[in-house]
């Protein structure tokens, strides 16, 4: 089971400059946890000290915001694409 994860520019230092990386997992939570194994440091960028996803980060599965699915428990199928998108744009 292969999930593609699109990584925003500000996090590509952690992924060795790659804008797309691969993970496996049957839920968004599992896929993000799997990603942390290969790219340590990603988790602390995405989650706050309270263990919740930071509110200025949006996660999409294919074209859908996971807030409108089942949040981090949203199910994944082989070939799905997760996008990590900053909720705001830096620079004026």
């Amino acid at each position: 089971m292969q999930i593609t994860v699109r990584v925003p520019t500000p996090l590509q230092k952690i992924t060795a400059g790659k804008s797309e990386v691969f993970a496996s997992g049957t839920t968004v939570k599992a896929a993000l946890a799997d990603l942390e194994k290969n790219y340590p440091g990603l988790r602390e960028r995405l989650y706050g000290e309270d263990g919740e996803l930071r509110k200025f980060i949006n996660i999409y599965v294919n074209e859908e915001d996971i807030r409108f699915l089942d949040s981090e428990n949203s199910a994944l199928r082989d070939g799905d694409v997760i996008s990590i998108i900053p909720a705001i744009a830096g620079g004026r």
């Binding site: 500000p10 200025f56 900053p86 830096g90 620079g91 004026r92």
Partner: peptide, 10 residues
């Protein structure tokens, strides 16, 4: 690097 401060740059 990935922040929520609109308009500012890291």
């Amino acid at each position: 690097p990935l922040h929520g401060i609109e308009g500012l740059k890291h």
